[in-house]
Amino acid sequence: MHEDLKRILYLEDVEEIAEIGLMALEDMGAFLVKHCATGQEAIDAFTTFKPQLCLFDVMLPDISGLDVLKAIRAMPEGRNVPVVFMTAKAQSHEQELYRECGAIDVIVKPFNPLRLSDEVKALWAQHNESQNPTALSA
């Protein structure tokens, strides 16, 4: 049995989108969320916040979400933390690129705030099952 998802590092630079995302994740999903508005802020917060999952925008004002993912993967404690991208740049070839870079999936913007926490929980469960397929039969 995998542990419940509680801690999410959320990287979104557009304040209005971040507010909606935070409301969906904290109020509806009951997650503990650390919001960052820049890629560098997310990189800096990663080791102290110790997220179980990262939810990253791709297009940011300082560095891209892909570069943030690369920086986190370079940290020993970031090698296995699942990352989901939330982006409007979500054509099939772009989604494939994000997965090839190490994201477990992509949530397309505009996202449905009423369904966001359930989508994140489902991705968390799917990721854990893929990491430990025998957990279901135990």
Rank of each mutant, 00 (worst) to 15 (best):
30 A>S: 06
28 M>R: 15
76 P>Y: 07
39 G>S: 06
14 V>W: 10
31 F>I: 10
19 E>A: 10
117 S>M: 13
2 H>G: 10
42 A>E: 00
41 E>M: 02
97 L>P: 01
128 N>L: 08
20 I>H: 06
36 C>Q: 04
43 I>C: 00
138 A>S: 05
129 E>Q: 05
133 P>G: 11
110 P>E: 11
20 I>Y: 03
53 L>H: 05
62 D>N: 01
63 I>V: 11
33 V>G: 10
27 D>L: 11
40 Q>T: 02
66 L>W: 05
73 R>L: 04
68 V>G: 00
126 Q>W: 10
41 E>A: 09
68 V>E: 00
108 V>M: 14
81 V>I: 04
85 F>R: 00
17 I>T: 10
23 M>Q: 14
101 C>F: 13
82 P>Q: 08
81 V>C: 03
50 K>V: 11
86 M>V: 08
65 G>N: 02
22 L>I: 12
132 N>A: 14
72 I>L: 04
108 V>S: 13
69 L>T: 01
106 V>G: 08
5 L>I: 15
14 V>Q: 12
72 I>P: 00
97 L>W: 12
21 G>M: 09
39 G>T: 10
11 L>A: 04
59 M>N: 04
119 E>H: 14
8 I>L: 08
60 L>E: 01
27 D>R: 15
86 M>R: 01
101 C>Q: 15
54 C>V: 05
90 A>E: 08
33 V>D: 13
109 K>R: 15
40 Q>A: 03
94 E>F: 05
72 I>V: 06
45 A>G: 01
96 E>A: 12
74 A>E: 09
119 E>K: 15
86 M>K: 04
18 A>M: 15
60 L>F: 03
112 N>I: 09
108 V>Y: 08
53 L>T: 05
127 H>P: 06
123 L>N: 10
44 D>M: 07
70 K>S: 15
135 A>L: 10
118 D>F: 12
133 P>K: 09
24 A>Y: 15
115 R>W: 04
7 R>I: 08
88 A>W: 08
63 I>F: 04
110 P>T: 09
30 A>K: 15
32 L>D: 14
90 A>C: 07
131 Q>S: 04
67 D>C: 00
17 I>H: 09
16 E>L: 13
136 L>R: 07
50 K>D: 04
94 E>I: 02
109 K>H: 13
6 K>I: 09
94 E>D: 14
135 A>R: 14
21 G>V: 02
117 S>I: 13
131 Q>K: 07
90 A>F: 05
32 L>R: 09
104 I>G: 06
57 D>H: 02
